[in-house]
Amino acid sequence: MMRYLPHWLSCGVLASAGLLGGGLDPALAADLGPPPAPVIEAPAMPSWSYRVTPYGWLTALNGTQTVRGRSVKVNASFADIVEESDTLVALMGDVEARNGPFALMANVVWSKIGVERSNVRSRALAPGVTGSLGTSLGLDIEMAIAEVGAAYEVARFGALAVDVLGGARYWYQEADLSLDVTAAVQVGDLEVAGARAFARSGSVDWLDPLIGARVRYTVAPGHELWLRGDIGGFGVGSDFSWQAIGAYGFELGTYQGITFSGVVGYRALYVDYVQGEGRQRYEFDMLQHGPVIGISAKF
Rank of each mutant, 00 (worst) to 15 (best):
E224A: 14
G69S: 08
D140S: 08
D230P: 00
G202L: 02
A97N: 09
D86H: 06
L133T: 14
S122E: 13
T66F: 02
E251F: 01
V181E: 01
A15N: 14
G257V: 08
G257P: 05
A60G: 15
L125N: 06
E283Y: 00
M2S: 12
G100T: 10
E96P: 01
A244S: 13
F299H: 02
Y4A: 14
N107T: 08
L24G: 11
I40H: 14
G56D: 02
S261H: 04
Y172Q: 11
L227N: 01
A17Y: 11
A213S: 11
V263E: 10
P34G: 10
V109C: 03
L269C: 03
A103C: 07
A124H: 10
S201E: 02
A79C: 03
I245R: 10
G33D: 09
I81W: 00
G149W: 00
A197F: 03
A15K: 12
L210Y: 03
A197H: 04
R70A: 12
L32K: 05
W110A: 13
E224R: 15
F102S: 09
G114R: 09
E283D: 07
E116W: 04
T66P: 11
S10R: 13
E174H: 06
L14Y: 01
A144C: 03
P35K: 05
Y282G: 10
F240R: 07
S122I: 04
L160D: 04
L58A: 15
I81G: 01
G33F: 00
G233Y: 00
I145V: 14
C11W: 01
E283F: 00
S111P: 00
V215A: 09
I113M: 15
R169V: 09
G229Y: 05
A195S: 12
A247M: 07
R214T: 08
V263G: 08
V129E: 13
N99I: 03
I211L: 15
M105L: 13
A124M: 02
M92W: 03
V120K: 06
W110H: 14
A168N: 02
L207G: 04
E116L: 06
S203G: 10
R123E: 15
A146E: 10
D230E: 15
Y55F: 10
H223A: 05
A195P: 12
S77R: 08
Y217D: 03
A268R: 06
N119P: 00
V219N: 06
V89M: 11
S122K: 04
G128W: 01
V187Y: 02
E147M: 05
G18K: 06
G202W: 03
S47D: 11
W226T: 11
E116R: 11
A76D: 12
P46D: 10
F157R: 08
A268G: 14
R200W: 00
G138L: 10
V120Q: 07
P36A: 08
Y172E: 14
R267H: 14
A175M: 08
V181C: 00
G188R: 06
G22F: 00
